[in-house]
């Protein structure tokens, strides 16, 4: 189950403003009635992209044609809070996002995204703001997230970012989906199971 390491992600970016953007906002629960993740892309941010009363497109940045090719999301603090639904990063991935830069993430969302190979890097607000402004001024700006050197750059802006060591290592070594390694330790798993009275 070899997977490709992710050392850097490049592409156009989009700024989706807001704090505490929760997973209900990213993918409203009614779109989770599905037995596969395949069709989720089109419902990402649905209730803020379309006016709930008229069904018309809102002025949400994802509706702005200038950003239609964006694959990197720049956003705020505590992104992905709320439910543990993997449908959220799945829908962002299927929508076309390859990476996220935010001030912070909810833990479960972060873990889910990493496992899917969607790096979520953390930037300080005051450093991220100029990059957001640059992207808004020039939607064609090529933004690069360098996981190896922990930077995000676009035009003449380069800012430092962080990501927990374990996630960085997992991405760089192509082990962000841990299943192969988990399976390898069969004997140790069985030994642990045998040591737990409620399991054996």
């Amino acid at each position: 189950m070899a997977i490709e390491p992710i050392t850097q992600v490049s592409g156009r970016a989009i700024h989706v403003p807001g704090a505490d953007i929760d997973t209900d906002r990213i993918i409203p629960a009614r779109f989770m009635k599905c037995v596969t993740f395949d069709g989720l892309g089109e419902y990402a941010f649905y209730d803020v992209r379309f006016d709930p009363e008229t069904g018309e497109k809102t002025n949400h940045p994802l509706n702005d044609d200038r950003f239609s090719q964006a694959s990197i999301m720049l956003t705020g603090i505590n992104f992905g809070c709320g439910s543990s639904r993997e449908h959220a990063p799945q829908s962002l991935g299927k929508y076309g996002f390859k990476a996220i830069v935010a001030e912070s993430y909810a833990e479960i969302f972060f873990g889910n995204s990493t496992t899917l190979g969607i790096p979520c890097v953390i930037a300080k607000k005051e450093e991220l703001d100029p990059l957001k402004a640059a992207v808004e001024a020039d939607p064609t700006l090529e933004v690069t997230i360098d996981i190896e050197n922990l930077t995000v750059s676009g035009g003449d802006i380069t800012i430092p970012v962080t990501i927990p060591d374990s996630a960085r290592h997992a991405l760089l070594s192509g082990k962000y989906d841990p299943i192969a390694e988990l399976l390898e330790n069969k004997e140790k798993i069985e030994a642990t199971a045998a040591s737990l009275s409620y399991v054996s």
Binding site: S166, H169, S173, K175, E181, N185, K188, T192, L196, V199
Partner: peptide
């Protein structure tokens, strides 16, 4: 169960 190569714990 042990420590994985990325430093995380393999938790039963």
């Amino acid at each position: 169960v042990g420590t994985l190569s990325d430093g995380r714990t393999q938790l039963f």
